[in-house]
Amino acid sequence: MIDIDLTFKDLPAWAAYVTALFVFLGSSLALIGSIGLLRLKSFYERVHAPTLGATLGTGFILVASMLCFSVLRGRLSVHEILIAVFLTTTTPVAMMLLVRAALYRDRVENNREVPESNKYKGVVSGQQNRPD
């Protein structure tokens, strides 16, 4: 498991270039997503930004890692797929819960940017059990 003798100096040229490109692209996407977290104005806009890093950003870095270790070890090394699968199934759940929680709070506090309950009857979070 722990490959002390490996070093990425042993990578053939093509693999080194491809890994370099993918790592760069992935980290740029993650950075852009996090900048969006700073720059966008409202919470509901900001929620979209980190998805960049969580989807394609992570994807690029995982592919780079898979490629690098597969070539270095000379055998398929694809356990990074686990992170990809895990992240794609959990991020939506976490984001959905967070947006719902924010919606619920905004509705309780009567903020303006939240959809009106009469327009989307029965759709807005927290409405199912509360006739109003």
């Binding site: 997503g33 929620v47 979209h48 930004a49 998805t51 960049l52 969580a54 989807t55 794609t88 199934t89 991020t91 939506p92 984001m95 959905m96 947006v99 719902r100 919606l103 029965g122 759709v123 807005v124 979070s125 199912q128």
Partner: peptide, 15 residues
């Protein structure tokens, strides 16, 4: 999962 992993759309609630 599909809607939330495409940046720009987020699934909020389904009745």
């Amino acid at each position: 999962i599909v809607l939330t992993s495409t940046p720009g759309t987020i699934w909020t609630n389904f009745s």
